[in-house]
């Protein structure tokens, strides 16, 4: 499948629909489900052409990246890990795929979901996490790491993107 060229709302809708199907069909009746939760997509904004949002289901909460057509973050095949640069820092994602969405990358936030009392608390956590991952690392108040000595040398990603030319 090729990456989607869709509006952010379309991606969120398709993602929610795909996992509502999974909930109704394949996950139905499993004890690992939190019965107080339902499938919902929270947030969903574009970053460098990729769609990023949080998927809440009764069995997991994932940060999801759906690559745009020109994406630098093409997920590998299912199960392949890849580090993705977000404003707050790099996170490790795992390649995944669903019909109607195509290949996407997911990063586990919580699973199982027994810790959430209701949908409201899950959505609140998802919103907080989204705003945290979009906050650049230097601005985060509780990041003493920023005070550490600056990185020496050029990362592999930086090298390929020509970071040394900009310095």
């Amino acid at each position: 499948m090729t990456p989607l060229d869709l509006e952010p709302e379309d991606i969120a809708r398709r993602l929610a629909a795909a996992f509502q199907r999974v909930h109704a069909e394949r996950m139905s009746g499993l004890p690992i489900l939190n019965p107080n939760l339902s499938v919902q997509v929270v947030g969903g904004r574009m970053l460098d052409g990729d769609w990023i949002g949080v998927l809440i289901t009764p069995w997991c909460m994932n940060l999801v990246l759906v690559p745009g057509p020109e994406s630098a973050n093409h997920p590998g095949s299912v199960g392949v890990k890849q580090r993705v640069a977000l404003p707050a820092g790099e996170v490790e994602t795992i390649g995944s795929e669903e019909a109607d969405i195509g290949p996407f990358a997911a990063c586990s936030l919580y699973s199982p979901m027994g810790g959430f009392a209701d949908q409201g608390s899950a959505v609140a956590a998802a919103e907080e996490i989204l705003s945290a991952v979009f906050t650049p690392a230097q601005q985060a108040s509780d990041a003493p790491a920023a005070a550490a000595p600056a990185k020496v040398g050029v990362s592999r990603r930086g090298l390929l993107r020509g970071a040394f030319l900009r310095d």
Binding site: V22, R26, W59, G79, V80, K81, E98, A106, S108, S111
Partner: peptide
């Protein structure tokens, strides 16, 4: 183990 398992996408998608 579950957080970083390479089979995690199958769990998320209900493929067991």
């Amino acid at each position: 183990i579950h957080d970083k398992c390479y089979r995690r996408p199958h769990f998320d998608a209900g493929q067991f």
